[in-house]
């Protein structure tokens, strides 16, 4: 009896709540009927239960039959792309963590053990995070894609609806998107986890530290924007990878994603606390330049104007991307 209970539980556990009770009663009735028939033929009781359950098959396959259709977080259509993206992100991140360890060890060989522990901690915390986020966004895509497919079935299909084979210029090269994803992943990992190395490296005989570009006090609060900007970039490349060609819809998505990135960049970079306010002083302290010299003036000018130019660079890039997309979508 215990084994029957277990079996019924195992089957109904995999079914929607609303059907569980009904199916459980029906299934119990069925098993008892089957046992009764066997008992008529005169066999040992315990053995009968096992035989009956074997005949019904594994709880998983029976539950599958009751459900009728399989459920996916990420369905077969997106699965290949999903695996590709996860692979890229994980490989890039692990190599960066490894490279980070090597660089840190070269710079400060004395604390190799600390660096090693850092590396392990990074691997354990960051890799699952990256995996989780990739899965999350693909699951969202699956949800959205699922409803889209339902809409399509409703319409009657005509051969005239067949879209022309995209012009070579309209196609998006896989390699392009892959390079994009690698690039964004590198930037995220670098800016998020080793921003203290993002600056001017000072060497005098040996490594003397870094004069950082960013304001370390306020940096933590900007981290969210970093993730938003470059995470949006990865999502954009994934959309391109799935679509395979430029369409108005894809170009529209690209525009939306880029507008969000742009807003985040504007907000972040124009804030007064983003850049290291002591940058010039620290440069002087580190002995890279002497205050008042010609070099000092030149660097000060570059430093003060850099915000403006970086902004221009980003905006040109972010505007060009969808514009290019729309132009290519028009080609038939």
């Amino acid at each position: 009896m215990e084994m029957i209970n277990r079996y019924i539980y195992a089957v109904t556990q995999k079914l929607p709540q609303s059907q569980r009770e009904d199916i459980a009663i029906e299934l119990r009735g069925l098993i008892e009927d089957m046992l009764e028939e066997r008992a008529g033929q005169g066999n040992g009781k315990e053995n009968d239960v096992e035989e009956v359950l074997l005949e019904l098959g594994s709880p998983r396959s029976l539950a599958d039959k009751y459900r009728g259709k399989k459920k996916y977080i990420i369905g077969p259509e997106l699965f290949d792309t999903y695996i590709l993206v996860v692979k890229i992100v994980l490989i890039v991140m692990s190599s960066l963590i490894g490279i980070g360890f090597i660089i840190q060890t070269i710079l400060e060989p004395m604390s190799i053990l600390d660096h090693f522990i850092d590396m392990i901690v990074s691997a354990v915390t960051e890799l699952p995070q990256a995996f989780g986020w990739a899965t999350f966004w693909f699951a969202i895509g699956e949800l959205y894609g699922g409803t889209k497919q339902k809409d399509l079935i409703g319409k009657e299909w005509k051969p005239a609806d067949l879209s022309p084979i995209p012009d070579e210029k309209r196609q998006i090269k896989r390699s392009e998107s892959i390079v994009g994803i690698i690039f964004y992943t590198i930037i995220i990992v670098f800016l998020a986890f080793s921003n203290e190395y993002f600056g001017i490296w000072v060497f005098q005989d040996e490594f003397n530290g870094v004069v950082p570009f960013l304001n370390e006090q306020t940096y933590g609060s900007y981290l969210l924007f970093i993730f938003l900007i470059f995470g949006a970039g990865i999502i954009k490349e994934c959309l391109k990878l799935v679509a395979g060609k430029w369409t108005y819809r894809l170009a529209a998505y690209t525009t939306i994603v880029n507008v969000i990135s742009m807003a985040a960049i504007l907000f972040m970079i124009s804030g007064p606390d983003f850049w290291n306010p002591e940058f010039m002083n620290q440069l002087v302290e580190a002995g890279v330049v002497t205050a008042g010299s010609e070099a000092f003036d030149t660097i000060t000018t570059i430093w003060n104007q850099s915000t403006f130019w970086i902004l221009i660079l980003f905006i040109v890039g972010l505007v060009w991307d969808p514009v290019d997309g729309f132009i290519k979508s028009r080609k038939k």
Partner: peptide
């Protein structure tokens, strides 16, 4: 016909 096939079919 296996009961495991028929029961889900009846439901469907």
């Amino acid at each position: 016909v296996e009961p495991g096939t028929l029961y889900p079919l009846l439901r469907r």
